[in-house]
Write a protein that binds this DNA or RNA. Structure first.
Length: 256
DNA sequence: ATGGTAGCCTTGCTA
């Protein structure tokens, strides 16, 4: 059994003690991080390596940043989503770990939709779709894990009407997420859990956590060869309730 | 109620 988790930590430096504590209890084989918010040279390697993990990171100052924490060394690392050499935002890292090809994805938020940020999001999703096609052609187990900044359906958030025109819920965004599924990828959480209103993100503002008013925007997408092995998938709400919490909480799955 | 919070270092921007 291999356990793969994804967590938007909203700064690895600010979250280090929470992350270390979660790793010690959850013991994932692979942990995909997003919004690390630091260049690779500043990544807190010692503390993570002392828990028995290898670190591969793609970062930049202040914004974005992704990483792969793995118990086995990662091989054949790709940093940056292929398809646009001019894109300098640190939102994608991909590697082979054991027999699994895994990516940590921080998909652009896209708000406000009137700005250039929304077309950037949609174009980024088109590039992700192209990359997913390539990976699926390998017929290997693949897991695309991360903060997709996409709320797939109205029962994946607390207020569908209020969020209707948000970049996380817009039809253009949801259509591109469905396109990933139509390629043959499986939403691991939805494959095993039908219940509505289960979330991975609760805004810091307006008491959203205390009211359980959140969104399901962090996803584990599996190729058929990975989905065949899917044994469990869960959202661990524990870390969201801790002091100095990220606004996201980890989602994990186990493959037989 | 045009609010509210968190993290970065840019005392505004991103989310």
């Amino acid at each position: 059994m291999v356990k793969i988790a994804s967590w938007n930590v909203n700064s690895i430096k600010a979250r280090l003690s929470n992350v270390l504590a979660w790793i010690e209890t959850a013991r994932p084989d692979i942990l995909c991080l997003q919004e690390t918010k630091c260049p690779e040279a500043d990544f807190p390697l010692l503390e993570i390596k002392s828990l028995g993990y290898h670190v591969e990171a793609a970062g930049q100052r202040s914004y974005n940043g992704v990483a792969l924490l793995t118990r086995e060394p990662a091989r054949d690392i790709v940093k940056g989503l292929p398809g646009d050499p001019a894109d300098e935002q640190a939102r994608y890292i991909e590697a082979t770990v054991g027999d699994l090809r895994v990516a940590s994805i921080y998909l652009p938020n896209g708000n406000p939709v009137e700005s250039e940020k929304f077309p950037y999001k949609l174009a980024w999703m088109d590039r992700l779709c192209a990359r997913a096609k390539e990976l699926l052609r390998s017929e290997q187990p693949v897991i695309l894990a991360g903060d997709y900044n996409i709320c797939p359906a109205d029962d994946d958030l607390y207020d569908p009407v209020g969020w209707r025109d948000d970049a996380l819920c817009r039809p253009e965004s949801r259509a591109r997420f469905r396109k990933l599924l139509y390629l043959g990828l499986t939403d691991a959480f939805r494959a095993l859990h039908a219940e509505p209103h289960v979330y991975t993100f609760w805004d810091y503002q307006a008491g959203r956590w205390y009211r359980d008013e959140g969104l399901r925007i962090d996803h584990l997408l599996l190729s058929p060869q990975a989905a065949d092995r899917l044994a469990a998938c869960a959202i661990d709400k524990g870390p969201r309730g801790k002091d100095k919490a990220s606004d996201h909480t980890p989602i994990w799955c186990e493959l037989a």
